[in-house]
Design a protein around this nucleic acid. Structure first.
Lengths: 373, 373
DNA sequence: GCTATCGTGGAAAGCGCTTTCCCCAGCCTA
DNA sequence: TAGGCTGGGGAAAGCGCTTTCCACGATAGC
C-alpha cells in the first residue's frame, strides 16, 4: 500500500519546487487523491518533517526565519491541514470534549448545549454532541464512542433514569473512562459518578405549588413526564412537599404521567380533567407539556387562567410567546451548561466530587390567576 | 514517556486478573492511567495483537474459537475500547461526517439536523455538529477542522452569504477537501461547490404573497432577515415576483431588514408600521420573526388578523402554538437534512454535481385574513 | 588554539491500530 | 512418501504526526 501510494504520488509528478499550487491543473497537477501530508510539506519546503511540524505548531524550539517562511509557503500552496487523528495519536493531550443529551432540538437541551458550547470554545475545545433520544442503550453506546474518541471530558446532560441496572452499567463505563484520565460531569442527576450540576428541581416544584396555593387554589393537578426520569420525580416531590406544608394532599389520580412533549401534555390534560374535574390549576412538569395543555384547553374552550390556571417548568423561550403567556419556573439552562463544562474542564483530581446547585425561581405571567370564585 | 507510562501503570496494581499475569514482568499488571491498549488485551489473552484486532473487528480472517473467546474475555475484563484516533489513522476509510449549521438551538436548524442525524446514523456514521453562529470566519475554521478530522463528508446547512471574498475562500477550502476525497453537500445556497438541496425559497415567497393578494391585501410589508443571506434575498425575490405579477409593487420602504430572530421581528415590525401605516399584511421571512411581530402587535393592541395579517416562513413547531396560530410557508426541513446527508454519503464522482429541489407549500392558519374593510 | 557552549536542524522512536505477508502445521492427493 | 494445499497464527510494516535525542557548525571561554 505504502508503495502504491508513493507510486501514485510519483505519477502526479511535479514534485514541489515550482511556484503556485500545482493543484488546479486538471489531468496532471494535483495533490493526488488522499490528503496532503506533513511529509509533502516538508519535501516542498526542503526541510525535515520535524522542522515543518515545529513551524506549523509554533513549537518552543526556534527555527530560522527563512526556513519558517518556506514552510509556511508550502503549507499555503498545498493547502495543508494536519491530520487530526495522527495528531491525536502522537500528542498526549486530548482536545475534544463530548456531551450526551436527550435531543438537541429540544429547546431545553438546546439552551444547555449553548452554555456547554460557549465554555468549550473558550477553552479551545471541540464539542462533540450526541443525541441519545432518551434511549438508555444509546446512551451507553455513546459513552463508549466518546471514550474511543479520546475526549478529555464527557458531560451527561439530561435527566437520570430510575433504573438500577442501567445506572450500574453506565457507572462502570464512566469509571473506566475516569480511570484512563477522563473527566465526567453530569447535569441534573444523582446516583452518578462524576461532578454534578444540580438544578433545584425539587425546590422549584415546591415554589410553584406554593405560588398556586397562594393564589387560592385548592385542587392542583399535575401533568408529569415519564416516571423513570429523576427530573420528573424530583419536581413532583417538591410539589408534594408544598402540599403537605399546606396541609393538603395530592392524590395519585391528580398526577398523570405522559411524555415530556407537547402532545404528551395535551393528552395528559385530557385525562387529568376527565378524572379530576375539580382541578383549578395544572402544573406541567416542563414547558412543552404546558404548551400542549394550553392547546388542548383552547381547543375545548376552557379559558386560561379564568377557569383553569396552567404553569410550566424551565422557562423556555416559547413560554413568552404562547397565549396566554406562560407562568413557569425558570432554570438558568445556559448557565447550567456552562458550569458543567467548566467543571469538566477544570479537571481536578477525581476524588473530591464537586456538586454545584442552581436556583429555580417562579416567573409569573398571564396563564395563572386565582381560581374561579 | 513510554517508560514513565509503564511505570505509572504498575502503580495502580489490581488488574482484574483471573489467571497469572501473562508473560509479563511480575508486579506489572494494572490498567492505570492512560488507556488500555490493544497490546494489553493481546497480552492478557496470550495472543498476538494481530489476532486480537481480528477478533475485535470481526475480520474476515477466521480465528479459532478458543482464541476468540480468550480475546473477548480480555476485552471484557479490561473494559477495552479501541482508540478511535489510532483506528482512524490505520484504517483507510473515514467514519465521521460533519455538518456546519448556524445554530442547532434554532429550531430551523434543529429540524434539519434531525434529518441529517437520522441518515448518518442509518449509515453508521458519527455526526459532528458545528455551530458557526452565523460568523463566516468561524465557518471557514470549521471547514478546516472537519477536514482535519478526516470526515467523510461535510454538509453545509444554512444560508449562503452574498460575499464574494468569503465565497471564494470557502470554495477554495472545500475544493481542496474534495480533492482529498471528501464529499460536500450544501443546503440552500448556490454559488457553491458540491451537491445541493435547494428549498424553494423564491417559490415559497411567491406563493405566500399570492395568497395574501388573493385575500384582498393591497399593501404588503415585509420584515426580512439580513441582506447578506441568500435565504433573505431569495424569499424576497419571490414576493417581488408575485407583486409584479399582480401589477403591484413593493417599495423599498415596505421592506425592513433585521435579524432572523424574535426580537428582530419585533423591532422590524415597529419600524415597518411606523414608516408604512398603510400596510395590512406583514410577511416575516421566517417564523421567529413572525412570532416577534405577533408579540409586538399584541403589545400594541393591534388585532391579528382583523387589523393586520401576519404570515411566517418555515413552519416551525412554534407556529401552531402561538395565538393566533401562524399562517406560514412549510418547508420539509427534516427531509431536507435527510436528503443532503444521503447525497453526501452516496459519494459518487465529484463531477455531476447533483441538485435536488424541495417544494414549499402555504399552510393557512389563524393569523391571516382579509384586510379590514 | 582548544575545548565548553549554544543555537539549529534532522533522524528516528514511538502513539495504537490494521493489514499485508509469511510461516507452520496438518491434511489431501498421486 | 513426497508435494501441494489450506486453515490459522504471528511478525512487522506502516498510517501521519510529535518529540526526544543527537549532530554539527559557530561562537565563546580559558
Amino acid at each position: 500500500m505504502g508503495t502504491t501510494r508513493r507510486a501514485t504520488r510519483g505519477i502526479d509528478g511535479s514534485e514541489p519546487e515550482a511556484g503556485p499550487p500545482s493543484g488546479d491543473a486538471p489531468g496532471r497537477g494535483g495533490i493526488a487523491r488522499g490528503a496532503v501530508t506533513l511529509a509533502d510539506v516538508a519535501r516542498r519546503a526542503k526541510v525535515s518533517p520535524a522542522t515543518a511540524s515545529r513551524v506549523i505548531n509554533g513549537s518552543a524550539k526556534p527555527v530560522a526565519e527563512e526556513l519558517r517562511a518556506r514552510v509556511l509557503r508550502a503549507v499555503e500552496d498545498l493547502r495543508y491541514v494536519p491530520n487530526a487523528h495522527a495528531q491525536g495519536l502522537a500528542r498526549s493531550h486530548r482536545i475534544a470534549v463530548g456531551v450526551i443529551v436527550h435531543d438537541v432540538s429540544d429547546p431545553y437541551f438546546a439552551e444547555i448545549t449553548r452554555g456547554l458550547q460557549r465554555v468549550a470554545t473558550e477553552h479551545g475545545r471541540l464539542l462533540v454532541i450526541c443525541n441519545s433520544y432518551r434511549d438508555p442503550a444509546r446512551e451507553l453506546e455513546y459513552v463508549e464512542l466518546l471514550r474511543a474518541q479520546q475526549v478529555a471530558a464527557i458531560v451527561l446532560a439530561g435527566s437520570g433514569y430510575h433504573d438500577a441496572a442501567f445506572t450500574k452499567e453506565i457507572n462502570a463505563k464512566l469509571r473506566a473512562y475516569q480511570q484512563s484520565g477522563g473527566h465526567v460531569s453530569v447535569i441534573g442527576r444523582h446516583e452518578h459518578v462524576g461532578d454534578a450540576v444540580l438544578p433545584a428541581n425539587e425546590e422549584g416544584g415546591r415554589l410553584i405549588a406554593e405560588y398556586l396555593y397562594g393564589l387560592g387554589h385548592r385542587h392542583i393537578g399535575v401533568i408529569a413526564g415519564p416516571k423513570v426520569l429523576t427530573t420528573t420525580t424530583d419536581r413532583l416531590a417538591g410539589i408534594r412537599r408544598a402540599a403537605k406544608e399546606q396541609g393538603r394532599s395530592l392524590p395519585a389520580r391528580r398526577v398523570v404521567h405522559s411524555d415530556f412533549s407537547r402532545d404528551g401534555g395535551a393528552t395528559a390534560t385530557a385525562h387529568l380533567l376527565h378524572d379530576s374535574p375539580e382541578v383549578t390549576a395544572i402544573v406541567a412538569l416542563n414547558d412543552s407539556m404546558a404548551v400542549g395543555a394550553l392547546a388542548w384547553l383552547r381547543g375545548h374552550n376552557i379559558s386560561v387562567p379564568h377557569q383553569v390556571s396552567v404553569v410550566g417548568f424551565d422557562d423556555m423561550p416559547v413560554a413568552s410567546d404562547v397565549t396566554p403567556t406562560l407562568t413557569t419556573v425558570r432554570l438558568p439552562l445556559t448557565e447550567m451548561g456552562a458550569r458543567a463544562m467548566s467543571m469538566a474542564l477544570s479537571g481536578s483530581a477525581i476524588h473530591p466530587t464537586r456538586v454545584e446547585r442552581v436556583e429555580a425561581i417562579v416567573v409569573p405571567r398571564e396563564s395563572s390567576g386565582p381560581p374561579p370564585a
